[in-house]
């Protein structure tokens, strides 16, 4: 068993990626995720790790596309404006069915906004973000440990589904320092991780082509239908969430990432006062954990969606609960809903 160490969320993501077998990182500096890039610069180089400070986010995501096409476990990280720039490349990665991991340590927008924590890129992350009918698998860690652990999961899911995976954090989680248990085992490629489609040179086989272009409309439609099948499978198999105190809950708070930590404290405080409150914390934002809601759906449960944005996750909660009442509490761009805000809202 390895001993516990103290790390920030940004560093834990970087170390997690390395332990999960990431051998290629390209990124462009942006706050509040600079520690991640810097950590990679120190710890990636050497066989077989490759670190490139790219000339832009466009270059970085296209480098990830290339590294993944060549068979490497590849990732990039950025924060909101940089993630916007990467969208075309992410769409190509989805279209070429390449595995890749993209980390977004969100900041407040729109535009340059500022570096206060926010969750305002929820729509961008969960709806695809770029052009075309595609999805990212989106994971939302709520602690430094989970950020680390989710890097293993993200690379595995990316390989398994040949799809881009986004880890969606925020500045609070990125900067926060917590004890971390490193994995005793690091990634060893197995038969499951074989990539017969990768570009390696066509020795002993017919040529491989990585592409997303289909001149023939029937072929493109067929390709899209297959993508949709893949997404349906992911929806069915990969919903993840954490739930606390749901059994007798009259009010269920829904929150993810850093916001869920504050919501959890509020839930404990309210329970201490005898209030029947529970929490659903989506761990996958796409697929959204609808199953968590259908499982507990009763006609008189009241929901409270709490987010560091102005009603983005709220829409998925509304879709998941149908006719049940969903209240909303959200702040972004300077403020974060506090434990007291949540308690007041539940009581009021």
């Amino acid at each position: 068993m390895k001993k516990k160490i103290l790390m920030t969320g940004n560093e834990a993501v970087a170390q997690g990626a390395i332990d999960a077998g990431c051998t290629f990182y390209a990124g462009y500096p942006i706050t509040p995720q600079n520690e991640l890039t810097a950590y990679m610069a120190v710890h990636m180089p050497g066989k077989p790790g490759i670190f490139i400070q790219a000339e832009s986010e466009l270059a970085a995501i296209n480098m990830v596309y290339g590294a993944s096409a060549a068979g490497a476990r590849a990732m990039t990280s950025s924060s909101s404006p940089g993630i916007s720039l990467k969208q075309e490349g992410i769409s190509y990665i989805a279209g070429a069915e390449l595995p890749a991991v993209i980390v977004n340590v969100m900041r407040a927008g729109p535009g340059l906004g500022n570096i206060t924590p926010a969750q305002s890129d929820y729509f961008q992350a969960t709806r695809g973000g770029g052009h075309g009918d595609y999805h990212l698998i989106v994971l939302a860690p709520a602690s430094v440990q989970e950020a680390y652990d989710q890097m293993f999961l993200s690379f595995d899911l990316a390989d398994k589904y040949r799809a881009p995976v986004m880890v969606l954090g925020d500045g609070m989680l990125g900067q926060m320092m917590e004890p971390l248990q490193l994995s005793a085992v690091s990634f060893q490629p197995s038969a499951e991780n074989k990539k017969p489609w990768a570009l390696t040179g066509c020795a002993g086989r017919s040529p491989n082509v990585i592409k997303s272009f289909y001149m023939d409309t029937n072929e493109l439609e067929k390709f899209n239908l297959n993508l949709q099948k893949k997404y349906a499978l992911i929806r069915q198999k990969e919903q993840r969430w954490e739930e606390i105190f749901l059994k007798d809950a009259k009010t269920i708070i829904v929150a993810y990432g850093s916001m869920a930590r504050i919501a959890r404290s509020a839930v404990h405080a309210l329970r201490g006062k005898g209030k029947k409150v529970g929490l659903i914390r989506p761990i996958t934002l796409w697929p959204f954990p609808e199953k968590a809601f259908t499982k507990h759906l009763t006609s008189n449960t009241r929901y409270l969606a709490v987010e560091m944005s102005y009603g983005q996750m709220l829409e998925d909660v509304q879709l998941a609960v149908g006719k049940a009442k969903v209240d909303f509490l959200g702040r972004a761009g300077g403020g974060v809903p506090s434990e007291e805000d949540i308690i007041r809202r539940v009581n009021g």
Binding site: L58, G89, N208, V209, K211
Partner: peptide, 11 residues
């Protein structure tokens, strides 16, 4: 007739 990849416009 060898391994190839498409790249986005300019990349």
């Amino acid at each position: 007739n060898f391994d190839c990849s498409e790249a986005a416009h300019g990349r």
